[in-house]
Amino acid sequence: MSIRHGLLALLERGSRYGYQLRAEFEESTGGTWPLNVGQVYTTLGRLERDGLVRGMPESDGGQRPYEITDAGRAELALWFATPLSQADRPRDELAIKLALAITTPGVDVRAVVQTQRSATMRSLQEFTKLKQAGGELPWLLVLEAMIFQCEAESRWLDHCESALVRHRPTVTPVTQHIDERVTADERA
C-alpha cells in the first residue's frame, strides 16, 4: 500500500488537515505504520500536483485543509478494485536467508530455522495478547492479518525443518574453471 492511497481514503471521509491525516492514518493501522507529518505534507503536495486533491483556503489558525477531487475519487476506486500482485510486494528476506544458509558452508541451518521460529512465535504471542485486549474492527483485522502471516511463516518453518531432515545433499559436480572453459573453446 502506498501512503498516497491511504490519504485519499481518509480524505474521502471529508476534508482534513495534515496533522489530522497523520493521526487518523496511524489510528486506522493500529500504529503499525507510523508516519511523520513531513511525509504527509510531501505526499499531499504530490497528490495536489497530480490533481487528486485540492488545497482549500487556510483557516484562521493558519492550517490548510485538503479535499479529494473527482480524479482522486477515481484513483481511489481503481486502487480498491485492483488486487495486489505478489510482484508488488517486497521480496521475502527470510526465504532468501534460508536458501543462502543451506548453501553456505558451516551454517547450522536447523538452528537458523529454530531461532526464527522462536522469534515468530514471540511476535505471534504479542499480537495474540493485543487481540485479547480487543479494539475496533479495522484494528482487529490488521492484527489478524499479522497473526495469519506469523502463522503461515511458522508452518513454512515447520515444513523447512522436516524437509531438512529428509534432505540428502546431491554431490554437485565441481564447476569447471573459466580458464579451462576458454581453453576448451579455443581447442574446439
Binding site: M121, L124, E151
Partner: peptide
C-alpha cells in the same frame, strides 16, 4: 497450530 500456541505464556518445541 502456532496461532493456538500463541495464547500461552511460554512455548516449548519438542523434537
Amino acid at each position: 497450530e502456532a496461532r493456538h500456541a500463541a495464547w500461552a505464556d511460554r512455548v516449548i518445541f519438542l523434537r
